[in-house]
Design a binder for these strands. Structure first.
Lengths: 130, 130
DNA sequence: GATTACGTTGACGTTAACGTCAATCCTTTT
DNA sequence: AAAAGGATTGACGTTAACGTCAACGTAATC
C-alpha cells in the first residue's frame, strides 16, 4: 500500500489545527506519529484518529474521554480477554450518544418554537407598518 | 401566581450543582437572582435558565455561547429593532444544532459498525470454545 | 554560504470554569 | 447564650487545552 505519510505542516492545513495541538495530542498519547530523525511523520492511522478526536471535541467530550473512545477503534490487535470489556464500553458510549441525540432533538424542537414566535412578531410588525 | 423562590441550597440539590457554580453563573450574568438582604433567591426564570445552561454544557457550548443563546428565550421585552437580528441568530443556532445532530447520527452509525464487529469476534470465540 | 522554510524541544503564559478555604453574618434550635 | 446550620464575600488554587516565545537543527534555495 502507498504509505502516504504527512508532515506536521500538511496535517495542520488539512485539519485546521496548529502544530502545538498535534504535539499536545501526541504527548497525551492520542496520536503516535513515526519519526524521520526528529521530524514527525503522521500515518493514515493518525489521520483517522485525529478525525475522531476533532469530532469528539465538537460533541463536548474531553480529551481523556476521547482517548477512551479511541480504544474502540483499535480492536484488531486486542487480546480476546478484553473483547467483552470493549463491547461493554462500546454499548455504553452508544447509549450516551443516543441520549445526546434525543436531547438535541428536544433542543431543536424548542428552538423551532422560539423562531416561530419571533416570526409571528415580525409578521405583525409588517402589517402594522403597511 | 405562586412565587416559588428557591434558596441557593435548594437549587443545588435540585440541579446537582454547587453554590460556587451558581454564584459564578451570576457573576457572568447568566442568572440574576433576587435578594432577601444578602441571601440569594432564585426565581422561576432562573430555574428555567439554569436548565438551559446545563443542557448547553452537555452539548459542549461555552458559557459565553450559552449566554448568547439565552437571549433567544428573552424575547418578550425586546425592542422591535432587535427582532430581526434575534431571528437571524436563532436560525444560525438552529442550523448549528441540526448539523450537530447529523454528525451525531454519523457517529452513532460508525459505532454500531464497531459493535457489530466486536460481536462477530465474540461469537467466533464462542464457537471455538465449544 | 547565507537566507528562507519548516521542523524540533523546552518552558512559561493564558483562559474557562469552577474548587477550596477563611472570615463573617444571620437565624433557628438546644 | 451558645451552638449549629445555612448563607455571604473575598481571594487564591486548580485543571484542561492549548498559545506563545526562545533557541536550536536541517534542508533546500537563491
Amino acid at each position: 500500500m502507498t504509505e502516504t505519510l504527512s508532515t506536521i505542516g500538511e496535517m495542520c492545513s488539512q485539519f485546521g489545527v496548529t502544530p502545538r495541538t498535534l504535539r499536545f495530542y501526541e504527548s497525551k498519547e492520542l496520536l503516535t506519529p513515526e519519526r524521520d530523525g526528529s521530524r514527525r511523520l503522521f500515518t493514515r492511522r493518525d489521520r483517522a484518529r485525529l478525525k475522531l478526536i476533532l469530532r469528539g471535541k465538537r460533541f463536548g467530550f474531553s480529551l481523556e474521554e476521547i482517548r477512551q473512545l479511541l480504544e474502540l477503534y483499535e480492536i484488531g490487535d486486542q487480546q480476546m480477554t478484553q473483547l467483552a470489556r470493549t463491547h461493554e464500553l462500546a454499548e455504553h458510549h452508544l447509549a450516551a450518544l443516543i441520549a445526546k441525540r434525543d436531547e438535541l432533538d428536544l433542543a431543536i424542537a424548542d428552538l423551532r418554537d422560539q423562531i416561530g414566535q419571533v416570526e409571528g412578531l415580525l409578521a405583525e410588525r409588517q402589517k402594522a407598518a403597511e
